[in-house]
């Protein structure tokens, strides 16, 4: 069954759909967690600390966090490798383009591949900036995420990278979520409108929720 999934274009899309759903679920949780920054540094830092002790005493310190990280890395790798292999195949299947060109499909649909690459690069920067602190502007302080977030969004490039990536995320989720439903066989003519609406709402809520943090830092609401 695993071979059937991996060898078939339909199966590989199923892998993309499931890994995409895992990442989407994480993003919703992540976005809600981010909003705690509006309730002050104590609550935000306290939440960040809880992420490390979550699951204790059943799980050892940080085990739950590492489980989440491993699942997420697996999802990102499966999603990206499937996307790369399917894209290679798609480009080979249409080697000659039409002389008479016209825009095909919606903007969100056409930008899935570029958007995915932008998001992949963003994730690398985001982890180096706010998890490891390797490329963090100013002094990165472990255990003080509130101050680190404010530092990042006090630089112009931090805001630009983040906001561009979150707009790309919104577009990716808009087409991606609806596609997940189609790929997993849940698409019907009768529920198409509901699925598209849900995809739009998810994309909008995630984008607005994430972008609200740098906007709040820029406008001085969070400092």
């Amino acid at each position: 069954m695993t071979r059937t999934l991996w060898d078939s274009t339909v199966g590989k899309k199923v892998i993309m759909a499931v890994s995409g759903l895992v990442m989407l679920l994480y993003l919703v949780v992540h976005m809600i967690g981010n909003l705690k920054i509006f309730f002050g540094s104590d609550e935000f830092n306290g939440y960040a600390h809880w992420l490390r002790v979550m699951g204790e005493p059943f799980l050892h310190h940080e085990w739950a966090l590492w489980i989440v990280r491993v699942v997420l890395v697996a999802a990102v790798v499966l999603h990206a490798v499937s996307a790369y292999q399917l894209s290679r195949r798609d480009l080979r299947a249409r080697p000659i383009t039409y002389v008479h060109k016209r825009p095909r499909a919606s903007y969100a649909t056409r930008t899935m591949r570029y958007g995915g690459i932008i998001l992949g690069l963003f994730i690398v920067w985001h982890i180096l900036d706010l998890t490891t602190g390797t490329v963090h502007s100013g002094g990165f302080q472990h255990g003080h995420p509130y101050q680190n977030v404010v530092d990042t969004f006090s630089t112009w490039y931090g805001n630009v990278i983040y906001i561009v990536a979150m707009l790309a995320l919104g577009l990716h989720v808009q087409h991606g979520f609806w596609s997940v439903a189609q790929t997993l066989g849940a698409g019907r003519a009768s529920r198409d409108r509901a699925l598209k609406t849900l995809a739009n709402v998810l994309a909008l809520v995630l984008t607005v929720g994430f972008i609200s943090v740098p906007v709040a830092v820029m406008t001085g609401v969070v400092s």
Partner: peptide, 24 residues
């Protein structure tokens, strides 16, 4: 190639085979 659900096929189909067919 594989399906990326652009919907171009169902728009072009002269017989109106609907896009949700792929999901089915």
């Amino acid at each position: 190639g594989g399906c990326t659900l652009t919907g171009e096929c169902a728009t072009a189909c002269p017989k109106g085979i609907p896009l949700p067919s792929i999901s089915a």
